[in-house]
Write a protein that binds this DNA or RNA. Structure first.
Lengths: 351, 351
DNA sequence: GCGATTTGGGAAAAGGTTTTCTCAAGAGAG
DNA sequence: CTCTCTTGAGAAAACCTTTTCCCAAATCGC
């Protein structure tokens, strides 16, 4: 009947009262002992600690939260559970928060207003300390109203309310990275094939594309806008290389900067089908750095990565500082992209 | 100074005490009024309800949970936040639970034991009512020990502890669906190209493939095992159609059942490159029904769908019934797959 | 009109923790 | 030897809600 039981994850959780009773002190003393507060003999403190350890005591977060008016919980709202954009973001948020003891409620609202309200209400009931909203498009609102909730809200990779704080990728910067890389490699006729004109990022990237070429004194070809699909990549190659549309002296492009990796894949396949070599005849760069696509193209695709996990981390940490009462400037913060170089661009002429 | 303020989401949440004070009753009466309990005049009840409404009162879940010893919260453990398998599962779980007022903690443990323990501890501290474990492989354990936690645990699309309840896809059944579909269409020489032998599902599907062909009296070709990549699909086509390995009279396959959609994509591309038509010369079926891949192949790919969202729903509902104290048989429950027919198989001979 | 029952509503405990206040005993100063 | 100060630890309030008991007033039966 000795008490050498291992720390027992009991059927019913151990309370502080039980620890105190077994250690022969009051709950107040027990609490102080375990939190390093109050004054007592080292021996008493140690005895209480030991007892708690032996019983496998874990303070009840619910009770703590009630008292502290802080739940150490945040809500993560998304309309993109299937997608590949919000996932890295979510992962980054979660990683940033778990270390601070903060848990994340995952709320998938699809594009359903009712579902959105349901989740927001649930989060408010559960007394989350703050909310992060993330989506599949940087220029679309989630179907929920997050203004005036009485708790901090951060937007990540989605359209924010006015006066809020948002983290988004620097699409123009990312596009510059790609086009400047082509220039450095000596490419002279750089085309741009992108997604639908209804996306804000399409314009941001296209403008950056024009800017860089103008700065370098290279010819600007009007960007080709279509859809985000491989099929559009195929079609665009037809348009670009069948000559009717290449105005300046019939010269064909020697580089294509694509709006996403799927378009890039279509472009690469179409080029190969018409006997053009990548990267020797034409260089190709994609956007999103969707690993599973970028590594399946032949050759593997150089692509712009939006650093979404980092974006999520940043959003999580900022929310935490807001929750902690620190002030922060409202506004949209653009985080830099990075270029992941694989083999679809070739080496510099002298390299 | 009239009280026509809209329901105010106050800086500091409204408590029941404030509602009671404003309605001129005790908190006990207020509580009963709002919960439809106790006895009081209809007029009193209505007055309290109105006051609560006007103040935007929301009962504090933390306090309720403390009292009820139930948090209406579950933990979702996964090691596959980026992947496409656990995402539909997670989405299904979340959907099933939100309607019951249960929120979901998202915990990404990667493959890190320390992170796993951290998350499990956090969940236990937050007094989750139960835990669902999900992963990226049906035959691998999460890096955490979930036995003896004192709360119900359900496994979904991951290897369970002995004696636990798990939901997995019926891979053998899914493979049968595919092969039988080929048979119905009159295909006679059906090959199977799959992933690495280290995956349990590879064997389950291969065995079902053999079984069906044997039942139908068709020739069984030894399954080709490789990796889950497009590149392997290309390579396998070489092996299958270069003749050295097709033993019976040099006949080439007229159908290929692939272990996943990426392999199928590689197979389709490779077939086209050697001048074989899909579906006219060779039919192809994939596995996973990864929409973005299946719809990008030319022609669009017929594929086996594991119904992962439904699997998640089922897991969520079962966990809830467990939490509610209802008994349930331990064991592994296999949920049926379904075949999503697109255009890579062709029509039946007489169709 | 008197006792028994119903009605409307309140007091208090419970849930588990933290924190402030209080208090007794012992130690040091003079 | 008395007075003050420190030390060690407990009592109680607070966080917010639910629920059980309880009580006073009103109603009913006769």
């Amino acid at each position: 009947m000795v008490s050498d039981v291992q720390p027992v994850s009991a059927k019913t959780p151990v309370t502080l009262r039980e620890v105190a009773a077994l250690a022969g002190v009051s709950v107040a003393t027990a609490s102080k002992a375990l939190n390093g507060q109050g004054r007592m003999t080292a021996e008493t403190r140690e005895r209480i600690r030991e007892t708690a350890q032996r019983l496998g005591f874990r303070p009840n977060s619910l009770a703590q939260s009630l008292l502290r008016r802080r739940s150490f919980t945040v809500g993560l709202l998304t309309n993109d559970t299937y997608g590949r954009f919000s996932l890295p973001v979510m992962s980054g948020i979660s990683d940033a928060l778990v270390d601070k003891g903060v848990s994340v409620f995952l709320c998938n609202v699809e594009d359903d207003q009712r579902l959105g309200q349901l989740h927001v209400d649930a989060m408010l009931d559960k007394r989350v300390d703050g909310i992060i909203a993330t989506g599949k498009r940087i220029d679309r609102h989630l179907p929920v109203d997050l203004s005036n909730l009485g708790i901090p809200v951060i937007y990540a990779f989605t359209e924010p309310d006015p006066g809020a704080i948002a983290f988004v990728s620097d699409d123009a910067g990312g596009a510059r990275l790609a086009v400047e890389h082509f220039c450095r490699l000596g490419r002279r006729r750089i085309a741009h094939v992108s997604g639908p004109a209804s996306f804000a990022v399409v314009h941001a990237r296209a403008q950056a594309y024009r800017d860089v070429l103008t700065e370098k004194g290279l010819p600007v070809m009007e960007p080709l806008l279509g859809s985000w699909s491989e099929a559009w990549g195929h079609e665009a190659v037809k348009t670009l290389f069948d000559g009717k549309l290449s105005k300046r002296g019939g010269e064909k492009p020697d580089a294509v900067f694509c709006g996403n990796d799927q378009i890039a894949r279509g472009v690469i396949d179409a080029l190969r089908e018409r006997g053009l070599g990548v990267p020797d005849d034409v260089g190709v760069i994609g956007f999103d750095n969707w690993q599973i696509v970028a590594e399946a193209t032949r050759p593997p695709l150089t692509s712009v990565d939006m650093n979404l996990a980092a974006l999520g981390r940043e959003a999580g940490l900022t929310l935490l500082s807001l929750v902690g009462g620190e002030p922060a400037e409202p506004g949209i913060r653009k985080l830099p992209c990075r270029l992941v170089v694989r083999q679809s661009c070739g080496r510099p002429p002298g390299g």
